[in-house]
Deep mutational scan, measured.
Amino acid sequence: MSIQHFRVALIPFFAAFCLPVFAHPETLVKVKDAEDQLGARVGYIELDLNSGKILESFRPEERFPMMSTFKVLLCGAVLSRVDAGQEQLGRRIHYSQNDLVEYSPVTEKHLTDGMTVRELCSAAITMSDNTAANLLLTTIGGPKELTAFLHNMGDHVTRLDRWEPELNEAIPNDERDTTMPAAMATTLRKLLTGELLTLASRQQLIDWMEADKVAGPLLRSALPAGWFIADKSGAGERGSRGIIAALGPDGKPSRIVVIYTTGSQATMDERNRQIAEIGASLIKHW
């Protein structure tokens, strides 16, 4: 067993022997301040990774656009098919120029040779490549099948209805392509620590998230040296922004954090800054 596999296998073990965790309302004060600064709703939840206990939450059962955070769930569904012998990570998928959609920095470079399922998941999570996500959605049967996968996990809230990039439209009061912070946090925890996926697939999923290259201005910008984070960000229309993450000190994750916002007129930089400040408060009061 590799060191990384050992780390993920012992996530519940280490967490069980940690000192009790206590909620700190100071972080919620910052979440509410972010709402004021952005002029928009902000949803927040913080779960203990081992027990699933909610440590703090704000608007945990209000719907927010998922945006690209759905790509972690998508690759979880792909990995479940791999575990069941219905898919192979090494299978190569070929596609054409007509398949390319807006923001496809990886797939646009491989029109000639195609990409493997493993490479597509890596591109979808680490670079948020939209064509990679659409190609992977095709392998599982489309958005409705991802929703069905989530329902089978016990998540009857999260739903995907459309493809990239239309799913980022974020129309107010439109339930399409949305989740709730509580539902997303619980589902992410199941994917990373539950028995739904094999140990190898859980490790692969967290490795992809740990290698995320496009979430630097968010929670990662607030992390002290030595902290662990595996995350996936999302951005959408109407001032929408979000991030889902597993993080913790001492090089291992111990909490799940989900943050979503929508309806702001603020710039992307300002949305990023507010999420980073929430992260800084979380870490300060850990």
Rank of each mutant, 00 (worst) to 15 (best):
H24T: 09
E26T: 14
T27M: 05
T27F: 04
K32M: 13
D33Y: 08
L38E: 13
G39N: 08
I45P: 01
E46C: 06
E46L: 14
E46M: 12
D48E: 05
L49A: 11
G52A: 13
G52F: 05
I54H: 15
L55D: 04
S57P: 01
S57H: 09
F58Y: 13
R59W: 04
E61Y: 13
P65W: 00
F70D: 03
V72N: 02
D83K: 05
A84W: 15
Q86C: 06
Q88S: 14
G90S: 11
G90M: 13
R91V: 05
R91D: 09
I93P: 03
Y95F: 10
S96H: 08
D99I: 06
D99E: 08
L100A: 05
L100P: 03
K109L: 11
K109F: 08
V117E: 04
R118A: 09
E119H: 12
E119V: 02
L120Y: 01
I125W: 00
T126R: 10
T126H: 13
T126Q: 09
D129S: 02
A133V: 03
L137D: 02
T139P: 04
T139L: 14
T139S: 15
K144F: 07
A148F: 07
A148E: 07
F149K: 11
H151Q: 10
G154T: 05
G154Y: 05
D155S: 02
H156N: 09
H156E: 06
R159A: 12
L160G: 04
E164H: 00
L167G: 02
N168W: 03
I171R: 15
N173G: 09
R176T: 11
M184N: 00
T186R: 10
T186M: 14
L188K: 00
L188T: 07
R189H: 10
K190S: 15
L191I: 09
T193S: 13
T193G: 13
G194C: 08
T198K: 09
A200V: 14
A200C: 15
Q203C: 05
L205P: 00
L205H: 00
I206T: 11
D207R: 10
M209V: 00
E210A: 14
D212W: 03
D212P: 06
V214Y: 06
G216S: 11
P217D: 14
L218W: 03
L219F: 09
S221P: 14
L223K: 06
P224Y: 04
G226Y: 15
W227Y: 12
G234W: 01
G236S: 10
I243L: 11
L247D: 01
D250W: 06
G251W: 09
K252S: 11
P253M: 12
P253S: 08
S254H: 09
R255L: 07
V257D: 02
V258I: 12
I259G: 01
T262K: 11
G263Y: 06
R271A: 13
N272V: 04
A276C: 07
E277R: 06
L282C: 08
I283W: 14
W286T: 02
